[in-house]
Amino acid sequence: MALILHQASIALDGRPLIRPFDLAIAAGEIVTLMGPSGSGKSSLLALIAGDLDPPFEGHGQIELDGTTLDTLPPERRNIGRLFQDDLLFPHLTVGENLLFGMPRGDRAVRGKMMEMALKDAGLEGFGNRAPHTLSGGQRARVALMRALLARPAAMLLDEPFNKLDAELRETIRGFVFSHISDRGIPCLLVTHDRADVPEGGRVLAITPQGEVRHD
């Protein structure tokens, strides 16, 4: 599994925001993208996920496991995402949130997988709880499990640790990175905080001129 960007670029109202660049993320690799606010980091994730809205305009080719994604709608790209907010669906229980993205199939099997995911996240017995009854850390773990249960071929992380306090941040970071690496999923992480960068991982930075360089 590999996520590859060929000459990816983003323009805002016709002016270049991110100039064309190439990137290849290998299976299990977590690449970090940094840059000042408004430099286009989140827009780049939206371009890869397929929901970049006007006035932004994206160009270039995105490939995942040899398949070109450019014309596919977001739901067909098989790319999991974590956002700044956990975005658990408030009208569904924790268990229903986890089942939401899980491929269809035998109900008993899906239920077992859900239970395993809850156990994995240290949330055994939490399946019938409403998301708002969970702590910030618990919600973050459910959000990751929900994304992973959809069996994504790549992951995009849009500052997912931003709203967590320092202590929790480190725990959740380890939890997220280990699960993504263990499954061999290529991942692009956007962050402001250098502490979020995985040990030994590649770091890219967007310059004020819109160029993407290795940091």
Partner: peptide, 8 residues
């Protein structure tokens, strides 16, 4: 957006 990323 989250739901789309989950394949819906």
């Amino acid at each position: 957006r989250a739901a789309a990323s989950l394949g819906h």
